[in-house]
Amino acid sequence: MNFMIVRRAAVYLSLSIATFISIFPFYWMVVGATNESRDIVTGKSTIGTNLVANFQNLLAQVDLAQVFWNSAVVAIAATVLTLAVSSLAGYGFEIFRSRVRERIFQILLLLLSIPFAALMVPLFVMISRAHLSNTFTAVILPTVASIFIIFYFRQATKAFPGELRDAARVDGLKEWQIFLYVYLPSMRSTYAAATIIVFMTSWNNYLWPLIVLQTEDKKTITLVISSLTSAYTPDFGVILLSTVLATLPTLIIFFVLQRQFVQGMLGSVK
């Protein structure tokens, strides 16, 4: 029994250390948002009094409401579409196997490894010939069929019990009904994880929106933060405030969806 207590203590200790290491930069970022730039540079890490001034400076430079609206439209649309299209494909690859589709899947994995920089120029040519330059459509569409998320859903589907499908088929459900009414509800934790990941990726996406979006009224928060850092003497108070604001939506989504990771809450599939 003593051994159990020691082990428990070790678990708590290592989790606490990890928590401290993980939280510290975040804490520093939040504290930085309340300080003046020169205090931040000299390493001050206590709450300051400059939050309101930083906020006013930020508002003077950036149309915050517009920027957040842009980021939200892009990230929400991308998340919904990506989850729909990519989970269908991941399920399809795993449940209905054939030699041809296996080959396609292997090729997809290789496509995933091509650095985006190599594909950007031709993709940009296509987008502008289709007169989609400077549109959110152009930012979202190329990311919707995410090989990464297809791959993730395929791997997660391996844990989806075959008996459930068989039972549903005996009940006369069509394949799309099985997907919608049996698979989808029982994979809630998988969807929750994918939502967090896709939303975050899309919200933080930088290089492609930078190339495609041209006018100020279309800029997303990531592009704005990048331009805030451009000065010869950057104002770190304003930069850190904007990074704190940029982080909030992903954090909220994580807070809401992490309940799906609590064991037993959604009830076992069986």
């Binding site: 040519v125 010939r129 330059s133 930078l210 190339i211 990048s226 805030l228 451009s230």
Partner: peptide, 26 residues
């Protein structure tokens, strides 16, 4: 005049991609 704040690295990327693509509308 419409003066846009774009970082130097970002300008290089945007300029180079668009000139290379032969697309000038942006």
């Amino acid at each position: 005049f419409n003066v846009n704040n774009i970082s130097q690295d970002d300008i290089n990327q945007k300029l180079q991609t668009q000139l290379l693509a032969g697309v000038t509308d942006g």
